[in-house]
């Protein structure tokens, strides 16, 4: 993360260029989605409906939850037609 010790470290116009993905939103979660791919049909609804772009698809085509950015909204668990995802309480 960039730091700004003095005004001289700031750009000359209010131009932001650090991707928000450098920030973790994991701490927002009260419940976490846990994916069991046993019944997964690779329909990718979970990937499609994630408002946080926190589900990606790996080289083998399996959806992967990136917990660094998952806020635990539960949409993926609700929308999964095969009930592969369950929400578990964060401890």
């Amino acid at each position: 993360m960039k730091t700004y010790k003095t005004y001289a470290d700031l750009p000359g116009a209010p131009i932001a260029d650090v991707p928000s993905q450098e920030e973790s939103t994991a701490g927002w979660r009260t419940t976490r989605p846990v994916l069991d791919p046993k019944n997964c049909t690779k329909c990718y609804l979970c990937w499609k409906y994630c408002p946080d772009t926190a589900i990606s698809v790996n080289d083998e085509g399996w959806p992967v939850i990136r917990y660094e950015h998952c806020k635990g909204c539960g949409i993926c668990a609700t929308e999964c037609p095969k009930e592969c995802i369950v929400m578990e309480k964060e401890v």
Binding site: Y7, P14, A16, D17
Partner: peptide, 18 residues
């Protein structure tokens, strides 16, 4: 890049000084 996004109290003042 994003031009004009919000700045917190830690740097807003420095930017206005610029």
């Amino acid at each position: 890049t994003r031009m004009g996004s919000f700045m917190g109290p830690d740097i807003y003042m420095e930017y206005r000084y610029i």
